[in-house]
């Protein structure tokens, strides 16, 4: 089944009629065999969602593979390329589902158990040390206010505070995962350059946070 060369896969999937059907059936079996290994960290095979998810992802993968056949560049085995497409589809769905479920749990938790207040000062540290740490935190907050754009701040809140998966955060910002990564890269770069310009290093800043 998996003894085809990359060229054979491409030829057969591009052929009309039964040749293509046989190749598709074989590819279906390969994806279905591989996916459970990828999903096992996320979902128990005993979970009632497991088997329908594998089938649904397999179907979607085959459609996408046929649609994107011309983009396969032969830099890996064809089946590895197919597996990566299946994983992208499966994990996007699982992340979305996990986030939706955890959002509901948090809603209930928040109502029943309000979050504890954060300790603002380390009782073991001297008043001078606590004052220095508070100054550093205030300085970093000021830098962030000056350096981050509203969009960058929004992305940080969605990902870091509301724990949205990248795809969901991107969707809510009417962009895509790739552009969101670039936006955050720009934010990190700006911040890194600014800290360097102010002669601050990350370790120094982190020690202020660790001493809260």
């Amino acid at each position: 089944m998996n003894t085809r060369t990359n060229e054979s896969w491409l030829d057969e999937l591009r052929s009309p009629g039964p040749v293509r059907e046989v190749a598709l059936d074989d590819l279906h079996a390969i994806v279905q065999k591989g996916l459970p290994y990828a999903l096992s960290r996320w979902l128990s095979p005993e979970d009632p969602l497991f088997t329908p998810l594998v089938e649904e992802v397999t179907q979607e993968t085959l459609l996408r593979v046929l649609d994107q056949l011309d983009t396969f560049e032969g830099r890996s085995m064809f089946t590895t390329w197919v597996h990566k497409i299946a994983i992208r589809i499966a994990l996007t769905e699982l992340r979305r589902k996990r986030w939706q479920d955890s959002s509901l749990d948090e809603l209930v938790d928040d109502e029943e158990n309000p979050a504890p207040e954060r300790l603002m000062a380390d009782p073991q540290a001297s008043p001078e040390t606590n004052a220095e740490r508070a100054d550093m935190l205030a300085r970093i907050r000021r830098i962030l206010e000056e350096e981050l754009t509203d969009k960058q701040r929004q992305a940080l809140v969605l990902l870091g505070l509301q724990n949205l998966p990248m795809e969901e955060a991107a969707r809510s910002m009417k962009t895509n995962r790739n552009a969101l990564y670039k936006l955050l890269h720009d934010a990190r770069l700006r911040l890194k350059r600014r800290l360097a310009a102010e002669d601050l290093n990350a370790q120094e800043v982190l020690s202020a946070f660790e001493g809260r």
Partner: peptide, 27 residues
């Protein structure tokens, strides 16, 4: 804008260690 919580800022600062001028995108 809403104030960023300390933990989020801390993670951001931590990520600077791996931040480079040139980075690959997800695509």
């Amino acid at each position: 804008p809403p104030q960023l919580p300390d933990e989020l800022i801390e993670n951001l600062i931590r990520s600077l260690e791996h931040t480079h001028e040139q980075e690959c995108t997800c695509d």
